[in-house]
Amino acid sequence: MSDLRTMTYAEAVREAMATAMTNDDRVFLMGEDVGVYGGAFGVTNDLYERFGTDRVRDTTISELGIVGMGVGAALTGMRPIVEIQFSDFLCQAMDQVVNQAAKLHFMVGGQADVPLVIRTPGGSGTGAAAQHSQSLEAWFAHIPGLKVVMPSNATDAGSLLLAALEDPNPVLVLEHKLLYKQSFEVPAEFPRAHLGEGRIEREGTDLTIVATSIEVQRSVQAAEQLAQSGISAEVIDPRTIKPLDLPLILDSVSRTGRVLLVQESAKFGGFMAEVSASIAESPAFGDLQAPIKRLCGLDTPIPYSPKLERASVPQVEDIVAAASALVGEW
């Protein structure tokens, strides 16, 4: 581990894109303001200077058009990366994501693949309010034909993006806008990753916390506080929510006997409802010593007020409280 270096999540995404473009002529990037502007969150930065405006393409504000063009380019031998400036704007592109990209391989009997990567930031915490702060992963994970990735740190942001670019299927990479500027220790090279493989982020014996995206680091921080109270929490990061590494989760739940599921997005019909149901349907259910507990965003649009925004999604103290209750009351 001597080769660790420090880089931000945004830099990791950028480096992975640069690596892919260097190694594979078929890879190119298009999106709104990804060129000279450097991307709304600075992710693309100087890529247009390094790879030219043919391969780092500024588009008009046309989300449906650019995702569709990604589909067409992917069908005909390219490996496009489409950046959607905020994941909320995918609502403008839903036909091409859901009816076209996700279904084409199946619908044409396997004659064609759609190796399209859509990168987009989700999540709240920037005061951008209800139309720029959502976490929509459950919608996309629900669609057969799509893969959905949620990197929670810089190494995964690089590794999972490279894995997505190797995959012959459409992959939605949901980055988190609060993570972009955070620094992480990262290996000299991004380790190769497999879409569908989760990771035990922290080992523990009293309960399992399954968390996605930014809630992974909040859960790890919560686990550190819980340890001071004598509670040993295991934290699992699925990394890819579709396909989902269910064996990893079920094995952990069987060992600890308690499970807390943490997501930023609203509770009703969310991704953790799927995880909960899968645990309940499995033999691990018999090992549970306490009911399955979900800790999710409130069922409200993300509000503007900093106080309300913070209250709308699980914070470290909420996770500590929920985990303590789960262990203490059962």
Binding site: L64, V67, T76, G77, M78, Q96
Partner: peptide, 16 residues
């Protein structure tokens, strides 16, 4: 559904 895909295929033709 087709026009954006057609434009994308044309972009691919241009890039290739």
């Amino acid at each position: 559904g087709g026009p954006p895909i057609a434009a994308g295929a044309a972009l691919s033709n241009q890039l290739r």
